[in-house]
């Protein structure tokens, strides 16, 4: 009896392929605890690396300043101070409007709730497709829970806490591919819609062609706080389907976010 070597090799290759596919399928459906434990262990190595990377990036970004002339720096300084003053005035008027809004809501009988927030630093941004996620430098030790909303600045909603570990957490961004968020488009008329995440801070909405949407309209998340989700950038009417395609984007560049604010859910004490 003779055994052909190429047949043996072919059989081995088929076995390897079958084993790999089986592992892939099994792991796909039963992987959650392994991935969670894996991140918890790896974070002791990766978190310091991310911090070092951020520090190096900060240092490198300040090097070009030394190569610029004093005059250009003075001009830029003046322009930035004027912009800060202007934005400060806008912020004060926004605070007054927000307070008035909350007073009106309270008059209607909705008491609202006092949310406590925590400012956390971003270790790494949405760098790996298809995942649109942030890793932040706070976890169970800072009181974060799964489902806590995450804001940029005071009023821009960007996502929610997806996984929490002892000293870090992963944030799922609402602009991630396939993530749907209920919004109200506030412009000439207020329209309820569903914003589909498109990645990199972009959203896609489909509406009837008769809807009055224009560039600059705000996407606001329904609720007492009316957090901003995005701003309409582009609209296109499709005559064949009588629908209107709306593209919106986040009002800031998510990849440049260094700090975000997490709204901590109130702890519920169960009395037995």
């Amino acid at each position: 009896m003779s055994y052909r070597q190429d047949n043996l090799k072919k059989t081995k290759n088929i076995k390897v392929i079958v084993v790999l596919i089986s592992i892939g399928v099994l792991f796909y459906f039963f992987s959650e605890p392994i991935l969670s434990v894996g991140f918890g262990v790896l974070s002791y190595v990766t978190n310091p690396l991310w911090r070092v990377e951020n520090d190096i990036n900060d240092t490198m970004s300040s090097i070009p300043v030394f190569l610029r002339s004093q005059q250009s720096l003075t001009v830029e300084n003046r322009a930035l101070r004027a912009k800060i003053d202007y934005v400060g005035v806008q912020l004060e008027s926004m605070d007054a409007i927000r307070k008035e809004n909350q007073d009106l809501i309270r008059e209607m009988g909705y008491v609202g709730k006092n949310d406590s927030t925590v400012l956390v630093s971003v270790l790494t941004g949405p760098n790996v497709p298809p995942y649109d996620s942030l890793v932040v430098d706070a976890g169970i030790d800072s009181g974060l829970l799964v489902g806590d909303s995450v804001l940029y600045a005071d009023n821009v909603l960007i996502g929610e806490v997806s996984q929490v570990f002892s000293h870090s957490a992963k944030i799922k961004l609402y602009a991630g591919n396939g993530v749907s968020t209920d919004v109200i488009i506030s412009g000439k008329e207020s329209l309820h819609a569903v914003a589909e995440g498109f990645g990199s801070g972009n959203y896609y909405i489909e509406l009837p062609s008769s809807s009055l949407i224009s560039k600059g309209d705000s996407l606001v998340v329904p609720g007492s706080n009316s957090y901003l989700l995005g701003v309409v950038e582009y609209t296109q009417i499709d005559q064949t389907t009588a629908s209107q395609k709306v593209l919106a984007r986040s009002p800031f560049n998510i990849k440049s976010a260094r700090f975000v604010r997490v709204i901590k859910s109130p702890k519920i004490n169960v009395v037995e």
Partner: peptide, 27 residues
């Protein structure tokens, strides 16, 4: 997947999508 994985789309838990892609890519 371990470092950056979160829920995608309508899934309730994070699935190892890139792990499956890497298995297929290997083959």
């Amino acid at each position: 997947d371990t470092l950056y994985g979160v829920q995608i789309g309508y899934t309730q838990v994070a699935r190892p999508v890139l792990f499956v892609i890497s298995v297929l890519l290997y083959i």
